[in-house]
Write a protein that binds this DNA or RNA. Structure first.
Length: 210
DNA sequence: AACTCGGGGCA
DNA sequence: TGCCCAGAGTT
């Protein structure tokens, strides 16, 4: 089974395990998801969803974020890690949306990654979950780890991993694949204790002994 | 390529 | 108490 066949088999099995997979971050708009994804860096989606439940009621437009003081925004996300950095990102991002994008979240990778705090991972999450666009593959720590375990890539640089995955995966599955791997990473293929016994991929996984 | 930001959850 | 966690920017 070459890598292209392997990816299709992985998608087929995980799709059955996680039907209609999508981000676990709660959002009502593109702006919500941009903010939620920035907040999610190096933390858990559970922590983020706790904060955004109230945050998204208070801040509904780019203007809402731009018009509040940095200290107040920091306070509103204080339970999140790196909250000072993230508050700065969000405020600068809101300004840029207003100045250059008419207050709206852009729909292309090239534009999204110019926003403060938004890298390819965040951009891919937003593009796929909000607009249904497959422009790349979101590579987070889960995707990074599992892609190597499965032998789909040998690289460690997220951008190279994304390139590798894009080459062996049909474009229509780009967004879905990353989310399937993220779900697998959260529930089964955990960083510390991968549970091979309940993993639907154990028989085709080089890292499983079973 | 390595370093920094960092509070909350859970064992 | 100690360790880990849906990244991105800077040096």
């Amino acid at each position: 089974m070459d890598k292209k066949e392997k990816v299709l088999e992985i998608i087929k099995r995980l799709d059955k395990r996680y039907p209609n997979v999508k981000t676990a971050l709660n959002f009502n708009s593109a702006l919500d998801l941009v903010v939620a994804t920035i907040l999610s860096a190096q933390t858990t989606d559970i922590n983020v969803n706790k904060v955004t439940e109230n945050l998204f009621k208070k801040y509904q437009t780019a203007d809402d974020y731009a018009n509040v003081s940095l200290t107040e925004l920091e306070n509103d996300i204080k339970s999140i890690n790196f909250y000072k950095n993230k508050a700065k990102y969000i405020k600068n991002l809101a300004k840029k949306l207003i100045e250059e994008f008419n207050g709206q979240v852009p729909k292309t990778m090239n534009e999204l990654v110019t926003l403060p705090g938004v890298g390819r991972k965040t951009a891919n999450i937003v593009l796929w979950n909000v607009f249904g666009i497959n422009e790349g593959i979101a590579v987070d720590t889960h995707v990074k780890r599992i892609s190597k375990l499965l032998g789909l890539t040998e690289n460690t640089d997220p951008d190279k991993i994304e390139q590798d995955l894009m080459e062996i995966t049909p474009r229509k599955y780009w967004g879905k694949l990353s989310h399937l791997l993220i779900m697998l990473g959260r529930e089964i293929c955990k960083a510390k204790a991968p549970n091979h016994k309940i993993c639907p991929l154990s028989d085709i996984c080089p890292s499983s002994t079973t």
